[in-house]
């Protein structure tokens, strides 16, 4: 165990802890931009700089491990100026997109810019206009909005273990590129960790703003895993699916189906009435008619070939209760043990 002082507060943490984690353990807030709980420290944004007694240069709290007896100062005039300057440098090339950006209102860069009271940029840079491109068919990448925090690249590598994206180019020309398009599963892990609007979901682009939507927490129905997700609902329509970091079994991750497979909910092509095939064509029918027909056919098959001729396949998207009822029906009403389900979708 190592004991150090942060802002005059004595903290004892295990060896190897970073200063940032030590500060957070005693509720001292150090502003961060590229740091993400689920990722190894990246150390690209310089927002978390702290002063350590005896060191001439400020150190990044997210990457510096604690040492016995050091005295850390997390906020001072000098640090604020450094943080402001870091933000200003990030903002130099940022496009004037807030009014149309999907992230506007829940953007970490906006929050920090506002918090540090940056009202004017003294720096100028030649504007480099770059078109947005598709990282995958479902994810759009906006190079202009990208602040090069490397969260997406790290998440793809560390959380998913895929490494489909990486950084190409240097200086102002640097951008995130897809290294191997075949590897990308469109899981959206990069979307989840992106602090700005550099990576946006292309299904729900421009559909709603963060303060107008209602986030309804629910459980994903695609497989038995039971990931926690939030349906972004605006005017009774699902316009996006997000998830909260650190919530549920998935802790902020989703797969391509969970994150992007929601459009069926409001699809016009969904069946709302049962159909019966008559003379080779489907015709709308009432539930009574349809159920009578099914019961009649089942009885006929059971009478002719016995209950073993009937099998039931249910779905992993149904709830436990529904699946229980289904197997009960097969066993008790039909009298067969031929019950199975599709395991996954």
């Amino acid at each position: 165990m190592v004991t150090l002082t942060i802002d005059g507060k004595e903290v004892t943490v295990p060896q190897g802890t970073t200063i940032l984690e030590a500060a957070r353990s005693v509720d001292i807030r150090i502003p961060t931009l590229c740091y993400h709980d689920r990722l190894n420290p990246i150390g690209s944004c310089r927002m978390c700089v702290v002063e350590i007694e005896g060191y001439t240069h400020p150190m990044a709290a997210c990457t510096t491990p604690v040492d016995d007896g050091i005295e850390v100062v997390t906020s001072s005039e000098r640090l604020t100026r450094i943080r402001q300057d870091s933000l200003k440098l990030i903002l130099v090339n940022h496009p004037l997109d807030c009014p149309v950006c999907d992230k506007g209102g829940e953007c970490l860069l906006q929050d920090l810019t506002f918090e540090f009271g940056i009202d004017q940029l003294e720096y100028q840079a030649a504007k480099v206009e770059r078109d947005s491109q598709y990282a995958s068919p479902l994810i759009r990448y906006w190079p202009d909005r990208c602040i090069m925090c490397l969260r997406c690249v790290t998440a793809c590598q560390e959380i998913k273990g895929i490494g489909a994206i990486s950084i190409a180019g240097d200086g102002y020309g640097a951008q995130v590129v897809t290294v191997d398009a075949d590897k990308c599963q469109s899981c959206g892990e990069c979307l989840q960790v992106c602090p700005t609007g550099a990576l946006t979901e292309d299904l729900s682009r421009y559909k709603g703003r963060t303060w107008l939507i209602e986030r309804v927490p629910t459980t994903c129905t695609y497989c038995g895993c039971g990931c926690q997700l939030e349906l972004n609902v605006q005017n009774d329509r699902i316009i996006a699916v997000t998830t909260k970091d650190g919530v549920g079994i998935n802790k902020g991750s989703l797969c391509v189906k969970g994150r992007f497979g929601y459009e069926f909910v409001n699809s016009d092509e969904r069946l709302t009435k049962p159909l019966i095939k008559r003379d080779g064509k489907f015709e709308e029918a009432s539930w009574d008619e349809a159920l009578d027909l099914v019961a009649e056919k089942f009885s006929a098959i059971k009478g002719e070939y016995g209950p073993g001729a009937i099998g039931g396949l249910t779905s992993a998207r149904c709830t436990n209760e529904e699946n229980y009822l289904f197997q009960k029906f097969m066993r008790a009403a039909i009298g067969t043990n031929n019950v199975d389900h599709c395991a996954r979708l």
């Binding site: 903002l91 004037l96 807030c98 209102g105 929050d111 810019t113 940056i118 009202d119 004017q120 940029l121």
Partner: peptide, 16 residues
């Protein structure tokens, strides 16, 4: 209309 930090500031003050 020309400075991103001013835009962000306006955005935050108006929306939040």
């Amino acid at each position: 209309q020309k400075d991103i930090s001013a835009l962000i500031r306006r955005f935050k003050i108006q929306c939040q």
